[in-house]
Amino acid sequence: MELLVASAIGILTAGGLYLVLRLRTFPVIMGISLLTYAVNVFLFASGRLTVGAPPVLRDSMESYADPLPQALVLTAIVISFGMTAVVVMIALGAYLGSDDDHVDDQPQDDTQAEGRS
């Protein structure tokens, strides 16, 4: 089981990294989302893996899953939604403003380059 979770984190990271290195905004956003999953799962896994013992107190239960990473990841999920939304908005604004969705500065012609320096 540990092998599965660890390799899932690895796959998500690798996919996320590859997409983050792409040249257009949309794949980069996808990549950031994959990295977010990887990080959240990793944080969650820092409480180690427990099956069938949610941290909801019961008289019949002796041990529970670690609640602390769960609480931290819960807020992280919601915040990462906020951040994704901001990044998407920026990407959209940039695209609508310049009709170009490259993430890298594009080589400009001479007249524009003058104004930039």
């Binding site: 540990e2 092998l3 979770v5 660890a6 390799s7 984190i9 690895g10 796959i11 990271t13 690798a14 996919g15 996320g16 990294l17 590859y18 290195l21 990887a38 990793f42 896994a45």
Partner: peptide, 15 residues
Amino acid sequence: AVAIAGGLATFGLAY
């Protein structure tokens, strides 16, 4: 290459 290195690193760490 960068992605696979990163993936292996997080996999090793998590494992």
